[in-house]
Design a protein around this nucleic acid. Structure first.
Lengths: 160, 160
DNA sequence: TATTGTTATACTCTATAACTATA
DNA sequence: TATAGTTATAGAGTATAACAATA
């Protein structure tokens, strides 16, 4: 189905709308993976923190907060929970004792890998319905989107 | 699951990973639009409820909860807030008095349109960096993704 | 008895503002 | 004084379990 070259009037289906709706749709599936935040489950914010720390071990709280895009106090509490669950280490930096140094524990790495694998398995299952050509179209499109949306932000970007 | 024939050990960048990372990236931008949920702001869940009700006026609480993918009690509270803000109407159904009938107020339609426009403007700005050919690639990819992810779900699907 | 919602309770996530400790 | 974090407080979003009302 190669549908709809022209949008209907009542629902303007311009490209931005299409992108937004698609992202919301897939996000719902990703989120439903991690309901309740049970022992083995990670919420999306927790997932993002662990993902960032995997690549940026030793970051300060501010750096993580900036990257994830939340207030410092929010990140402080978020990290509290991850430290309590022993997924993240939090130590005072030697050179500047106002600063904290964050990192992943082995359990943190493991939880991240497990959560990531579960989500990827569900995504992979859906993508398996596509032909190789269609998958390639999607890969190219994702790379384009990464390019225009990543722009400013440093951090855990996957395409490197 | 046919992946993992040869992923890199530390960062397996298969297609599913690429999709997940891209969705997370764009989602962050969408969410940052609606910080705090101030007077004119809608949270993503609120946005989803209003979007669904725009197309499915008269739905019951259960129907909306099913669609959005949250527990009935969660939706009850979510709708509470929207009723308080006078964005949604909630009345008892005449034929089955256990059921509630939900709909949008004029303010609800207006808030949805405003929120949607703000988010779309930011998305459009980013997409403007692409060539027409690249945009078309993205449109095709989004349609493919809608196809494989929408599948089961009825509701507010945009491609009709 | 089964279905539809609401309420009670308890988390996480989020923000702003006040505060502490360090520089 | 300025910076890095934490804590206090508040509100939304989420879930499970207990409950009420209706069928």
């Amino acid at each position: 189905m190669k549908l709809l070259d022209k949008p209907t009037d009542s629902h303007p289906h311009d490209n931005a709308t299409l992108v937004m709706d698609t992202v919301l749709l897939i996000m719902r599936m990703i989120r439903s993976e991690n309901r309740g935040n049970r022992p083995a489950g990670l919420s999306v914010p927790q997932f993002r923190v662990l993902t960032f720390l995997r690549r940026n071990s030793g970051s300060s709280l501010s750096q993580v907060a900036d990257h994830v895009g939340v207030a410092l106090s929010s990140m402080s509490k978020l990290v509290d929970g991850l430290v309590t669950r022993e997924l993240v280490t939090r130590t005072t930096a030697a050179d500047d004792r106002r600063r904290v140094t964050l990192g992943l524990t082995e359990a943190g790495r493991s939880a991240l890998a497990t959560s990531r694998a579960a989500t990827l398995a569900r995504l992979t299952e859906r993508l398996a319905h596509l032909s190789p050509e269609e998958e390639m179209q999607i890969v190219q499109a994702m790379e384009l989107l990464q390019m225009v949306f990543r722009s400013d932000e440093p951090g855990d970007s996957p395409l490197r």
